[in-house]
C-alpha cells in the first residue's frame, strides 16, 4: 500500500531543531531539501533553534546571487524564511570568508570593498553551532 503522508496529528510536543546546511544552492538538491524541511518544520509547529550554514552551505546567505526569473533564488527564499519567522541563522565565518561571504564588519576587518551577506543571517563561529546543539532536541544535516 502506498501511503503518501504518515498520518500524524499536529505534534503535541514541540521540538527544537538545529539544521546544519552544508551545500551551496548550486551544488545539488541538498540546500533545497533543507529549505523545504525548515519550512515544513515551522508549519507543523516545531521550533528552529538555529540554522547553521557551514562549508559550501554559506553561499545560501549570499545577497549577490542572481537567478533567471524562472528559477528559484534560494538565498532570497532563505532570507525571507529567516526574516518572517525571526529565526536565528548563523553563517560560519571561516567557511564564509574563504568563499567571499562577508558582512560589513568582516569586510572592514579584512579590508574588502563590499559585503555580500544577507543581514538576516549573522556571521559567527562554530561555537554557536556547539551552543545550539546543547539547546536543541534534534539535529539534522543536509549536504
Amino acid at each position: 500500500m502506498v501511503a503518501y503522508v504518515i498520518d500524524t496529528p499536529e505534534p503535541i510536543t514541540v521540538l527544537r531543531y538545529v539544521l546544519l546546511i552544508n551545500a551551496a544552492p548550486q551544488s545539488g538538491e541538498a540546500a533545497n531539501s533543507a529549505l523545504r524541511f525548515a519550512g515544513t518544520l515551522l508549519e507543523m509547529g516545531h521550533h528552529i533553534e538555529r540554522l547553521f550554514f557551514y562549508g559550501d552551505g554559506v553561499i545560501n546567505a549570499s545577497n549577490l546571487t542572481v537567478m533567471p526569473q524562472d528559477e528559484t533564488n534560494l538565498p532570497a527564499v532563505w532570507n525571507a524564511l529567516i526574516e518572517e519567522n525571526g529565526l536565528s541563522s548563523v553563517v560560519c565565518v571561516s567557511s564564509a570568508i574563504r568563499r567571499g561571504i562577508v558582512d560589513s564588519a568582516e569586510a572592514r576587518r579584512h579590508e574588502l570593498p563590499a559585503s555580500s551577506c544577507y543581514t538576516s543571517s549573522e556571521i559567527g563561529g562554530l561555537g554557536q553551532l556547539i551552543e545550539a546543539l546543547s539547546n536543541c532536541d534534534r539535529t539534522l544535516s543536509f549536504g
Binding site: N22, Y54, G55, D56, S94, S95, G125, L126, G127, L129, I130, E131, L133, S134
Partner: peptide
C-alpha cells in the same frame, strides 16, 4: 574535499567550549 577539515574544526570548537 573539505569535509575532513570541517569535521576537525567542529571538534576543536567543541573542545574550546568544553563539550
Amino acid at each position: 574535499s573539505g569535509a575532513a577539515r570541517q569535521t576537525l574544526d567542529i571538534a576543536f570548537a567543541a573542545a574550546v567550549f568544553e563539550r
